[in-house]
């Protein structure tokens, strides 16, 4: 697959907080339009167009589809064909935090859920690691220490390079950031 040679001149890149990572001002979210209900020809072209225009960040989550998981599977297929020479030019993210599978271990913020969900996401996308792994929503019943130490563990295991949080309000976000 040949992509536009001037793709990086098209986009503005901004530093992500105080980190070493730059992100494109516009990133592509795969919440909708990449499930099994969608047309592969259409979303494949969307991914090509994104990268051709300097979009280096594709944002996924365990539950994106429908059905849940299918966006990661479908994205993974295209990644390993059309983008196989470009993995190191991409920031790929996934998340866990919403309902993903039956029973008490497929939802919210336990270490059990986060670690196993990321393993499933990596299998679906056929990746060794994601660039960013998020806790998708705050869990009022799990100790924050457990959720955050799961994120830390995942990075130490090499399954994610960076971590993030999503949908945390300011008072809830304070503790994970500070200290």
């Amino acid at each position: 697959m040949k992509f536009s040679s001037d793709r990086y001149t098209q986009m503005q890149y901004r530093r992500c907080g105080d980190s070493g990572i730059l992100l494109p001002a516009i990133s592509l979210g795969l919440w909708h339009n990449f499930g099994d209900v969608d047309d592969p020809k259409v979303y494949r072209k969307t991914l090509h167009t994104a990268f051709d225009n300097g979009i280096t960040h594709f944002d996924l989550a365990n539950n994106y589809g429908p059905p849940p998981g299918s966006a990661e599977t479908n994205f993974g297929k295209i990644l390993h064909t059309d983008f196989k020479d470009h993995r190191d030019e991409l920031i790929i993210s996934s998340k866990a935090g919403y309902t993903m599978w039956d029973g008490p271990y497929g939802d919210w913020g336990s270490k059990k859920y986060l670690v196993s969900s990321l393993d499933q996401s990596l299998k679906r996308m056929k990746l060794d690691y994601v660039d960013i792994f998020y806790h998708h929503r705050p869990d009022p019943d799990t100790p924050l220490e457990e959720t955050m130490s799961a994120l830390d563990l995942i990075v130490r295991q090499g399954k994610a390079l960076y971590v993030g949080i999503s949908n945390y309000k300011a008072p809830e976000a304070k503790k994970p950031f500070i200290c």
Binding site: S19, K95, I132, E145
Partner: peptide, 16 residues
Amino acid sequence: MLKKMGTPCLIHQPKY
């Protein structure tokens, strides 16, 4: 909390 563990939080994704 994450900083102390050595894995600072890179990013927050809010609805905005």
